[in-house]
Each structure stands twice: as structure tokens, then as C-alpha cells.
Computed example of a mutant assay.
Amino acid sequence: MSFVTTAAIEVKAGGRAVRVSSPDRVLWPQVGLTKADLAHYWAQLDEVGLRGYRSRPVHLHRFPKGIGGEGFFQKRIPDRRPDWVRRTHIVGPNGTASDALCPTDVAHLVWGVQMGTIEFHPWPTRSWEPDRPDELRVDLDPSPGTVFADVRRAAAATHELLTDVGLAGWPKTSGKRGIHVLVRIAPRWDFVEVRRAAVALARELERRVPTLVTAAWWKEERGERIFVDFNQNCRDRTVCGAWSPRPTPTATVSAPFCWDDLEHIEPGDLTVSNAVAHIHEHGDPHKMIDDTAGSLEGLLELAKRNEAAGIPDAPWPPTFPKMPGEARRVAPSRRAN
């Protein structure tokens, strides 16, 4: 149980003083980390923490009572907020519009903590290019029966494939059981084309390592393989951002790492308690992520080959309208003969 006894504090971040109420509210009971601890975590990360969120729409996964309480996603930020908090207009797949948090300094993330946010989920777009992603995301999602060593092997195969098509991948742990690979791209393609490239990548990985990786959307078809969740590249879909904490008992974070360290990482290595010290000792593995923007032409060529072979588009999420060329959006076990 959390007890709140301390008055609000001010946390210095990004050149601002951010008011944080109920600072001694315990968010992670098992390790005793409080709201103040989380606010100071982001303030200490500073520009390293901001890198994955700067000028992007960000969804907030809020746990006002800590991870033991109910969590909920918030896309629209409230009208009542400090006048320096920036927002940006976003439109979902069904046309619903809202104004999302758009960090321009790390104070915005500390303000998110004040709102009870544990997870920050950035869009793959910048505020000035809302319809053209500058990032393709490879979400390696372990199925039941797989272990983290399998995720590592899938990540290595992803690295090899990205290199073959002329793209640079920037890996990070998901903070739970998986790995995300972020791929910076030129903002030349819309969400449909970026997802098309992601589907091609998933299918090519499955072709190369079929006993390890699957591109099957339906769970009943995946088996004990790592699923490449291509639909995380749809409009309004997000993954947990770099250095964001997760609502796990030990306050693990989604931790960037270098490819050379792939064989040594574990999903629980870095937490809110030790991530800042780790960066001070080893540096920021994603420091150069914004320096180069790649092309999707290689992956889109793979997509063209699949289409020429008569392979339909993979199913879209149920919240999206039926798309041209899409396979049947019905699980195989429920289809009529």
C-alpha cells in the first residue's frame, strides 16, 4: 500500500522547474521506487532520454496509483497544463483527432510523470511530418515456449537482413521479453508503404529462419517462434520508447544497446535504479541514431516480389478498415470450408 505524506516538490529538468505532487507515492512496491524517483530519473537522463521522443506525438500509459493499480493509455493531453507544455495534432485510423504530448525538452517527460505516466509511447513521425514516418519499427515478440536466447537469434537475423537492404538498425530491449529494432528512414513514404515494407521484412526473416521466426498474424499459426509484429507500423500504433520504464516488478526499462553486445544483454539488466549510472559508464548506444536516414527501396522491392508471386497483404488490425489486397481477416480455425 502507498502512503502519501510529502508535499509537492520541484524537479529541475530541461531548464525548467516541474512541479511533482505526491512525490513519495510508491509506484513499484517490490523495489520501493517512488514518483519522485521516476521524475529525477528522467531529469538525469536529460538529452539522452529525450532523443527518442523529441518533437514526436507521444501516448501516455498512466498508472496514477502505481503498477499495482489500474493502468490506462491517454492519447489526448488535458487542457489544464503548464503553458510551456507543447502538443501536436494527430489523427487516428478512423479519423478521430486529438492533441498529443509533443516533447521539446526533457521537462515534458517529467511533466508526464507528474500525470502518473510510467510508459511513454512515441509515434514514428515528427510533428512537422505527421503522415510520413521517419522510423520503421521491428518488434520481435516472443511466443509462448520461446526464450530470450531465441529473441537474440531473431535480432541477429534482423540485423543481417537490414544490412543486406542497406539499412541501419538500432536495437533496444523491450523492457519485458522482446527486442525492438528502430530503423531511421527518410520521411518519403506514408504509413501504408512503411507497413508494406515491414510486412516484407517479416516475411523475408521467416523465409531465412523459418523454425525461429514467423510472420503469421494469427496466434494459432505461430507455434514456438518469434513473431515479427509488422502491424506496429500502422498509423496510431506505437511501441514503448527508449529508456521508458515498464510496469514490471523490478522497474525494468526499454534499454538501447549496441549490436556488439547482443549476446550479453538480458531483458532485466537495466532498471530505473541503475540505467543512468550505466549510461554514465558506457555512453549512449543510440547517440548517432539521427545522423543517417535510410531508404525503404530494398524492402519495397521484396514486397513487389511477394505481390508478383500472388502473396496477399497480411491482415491489418481489427480497428482498421478492410484494405486493398489484404488477406482474409478471419482466423484459420474459424473459416468456413
Results as ranks from 00 to 15, higher is better:
N94A: 13
V199R: 07
H280K: 14
L302Y: 14
I289K: 09
R207W: 08
D46P: 02
P187A: 03
W316S: 08
L140Y: 12
F72D: 02
D99W: 15
P93N: 11
L296F: 14
V228L: 15
E129C: 08
A216G: 07
L212D: 03
D105Q: 06
T214M: 12
P285K: 10
P82D: 01
R188W: 04
R80M: 05
W316R: 14
A186P: 00
A242R: 09
S21A: 14
G66L: 06
E297Q: 15
C240S: 14
V228T: 07
N274L: 09
A97C: 03
R305H: 15
R235C: 03
D229K: 09
R56M: 03
R328P: 02
T146D: 05
S22R: 14
I289S: 05
G14I: 01
A242G: 06
L60Q: 01
S55F: 13
T292Q: 05
G92A: 11
I118D: 00
P142Y: 12
L27Q: 00
K12M: 10
P247G: 08
C258W: 14
R329L: 04
K35T: 00
H108M: 09
W243I: 00
L205T: 03
A168P: 00
V272P: 00
A197E: 02
D260S: 15
R54H: 12
S244L: 06
P267K: 02
R153I: 01
R335L: 05
G95I: 04
D141E: 13
V91F: 10
E10W: 09
T146L: 07
W84R: 13
T125D: 04
R335K: 12
A107H: 08
G49N: 06
K35H: 09
G116Y: 12
V199I: 13
V4H: 12
A186S: 10
H286Y: 08
P332N: 13
